[in-house]
Amino acid sequence: GIDPFTGEAIAKFNFNGDTQVEMSFRKGERITLLRQVDENWYEGRIPGTSRQGIFPITYVDVIKRPL
């Protein structure tokens, strides 16, 4: 089901994660935001896939912030 505490964002740019914990994505992908890790990073996942990880806040347009 849908978790009411998650947020939502759209990727503004392609992001290629450097490490296992970073999640790569392509511009235009819809991302579920799980939490804000710190002032620069979100943790999120791509709905319908097993992809999950952290990524820079500046790479996405936030539609709804996670609670």
Rank of each mutant, 00 (worst) to 15 (best):
I63M: 07
I10E: 05
K27T: 10
N40Q: 12
K27Q: 12
M23L: 14
L67S: 15
M23G: 01
P66W: 03
R51D: 02
G17Y: 02
F25R: 00
F13D: 13
G28R: 03
S24H: 05
R26V: 15
E22L: 07
E22M: 10
F5N: 13
R45A: 11
D61R: 11
R65M: 15
M23A: 02
Q52I: 09
R65S: 15
G1W: 09
T6W: 12
W41Y: 10
I10S: 03
T19D: 13
N16W: 15
I31Q: 00
E43N: 04
A11M: 01
K64Y: 06
N14D: 15
M23H: 01
R51Q: 05
D38I: 05
I31D: 00
G17F: 02
Y42F: 13
I10F: 06
K27C: 09
I54K: 07
G7C: 15
E8G: 04
Y42H: 03
G28W: 04
T6N: 14
N16E: 12
R45D: 02
M23C: 03
K12G: 03
R35Y: 09
I46S: 02
P66H: 09
L34D: 05
I10G: 01
L34P: 00
L67M: 13
A9Q: 02
E43V: 08
G53A: 01
D3K: 10
G28D: 06
F13M: 14
F13H: 12
E29I: 02
V21C: 15
K64F: 06
R26L: 14
F55K: 00
N40D: 13
Q20V: 13
R30W: 09
M23T: 02
E29Y: 01
T49R: 03
D3H: 09
R51A: 04
L34K: 03
R35A: 08
Q20H: 12
L34Y: 06
E22S: 07
L34W: 06
V60D: 00
P4K: 13
L33W: 02
I31K: 00
I46E: 01
G17D: 03
F25W: 02
K27F: 07
I31V: 06
F15A: 00
P47G: 08
L34S: 05
T49L: 03
I46L: 04
K27A: 14
V62A: 04
D61C: 15
Q20T: 10
G44I: 01
T6P: 13
T58A: 14
G44R: 00
E22K: 08
E43P: 00
P56L: 07
Q36T: 06
L33I: 09
P66G: 09
I31W: 00
G53F: 02
K64P: 05
P47Q: 11
R51S: 03
P4H: 14
W41C: 10
T32W: 07
E39N: 12
G53C: 02
P56M: 05
Y59M: 14
I2H: 13
M23Q: 01
G28S: 05
F55S: 00
R30E: 06
G17V: 03
R30H: 11
V21W: 15
T19A: 11
I54P: 01
V62K: 04
L34N: 04
P4W: 15
P47A: 11
G53E: 00
V60N: 00
E29P: 00
T6H: 12
A11G: 08
P47I: 09
I10H: 04
I2P: 14
D38V: 05
F25E: 01
V37N: 02
I57C: 11
I46T: 02
T19S: 11
L33C: 08
F15T: 01
R51T: 03
I31A: 00
T32R: 07
T6A: 13
E43T: 04
F25M: 04
I31L: 06
I63W: 05
I63G: 04
D3Q: 11
W41V: 04
R35E: 05
I57T: 09
Y59R: 05
G53V: 01
A11D: 00
K64W: 04
I2M: 13
A9Y: 05
R51Y: 03
N16P: 06
V62G: 03
R65F: 15
G1K: 10
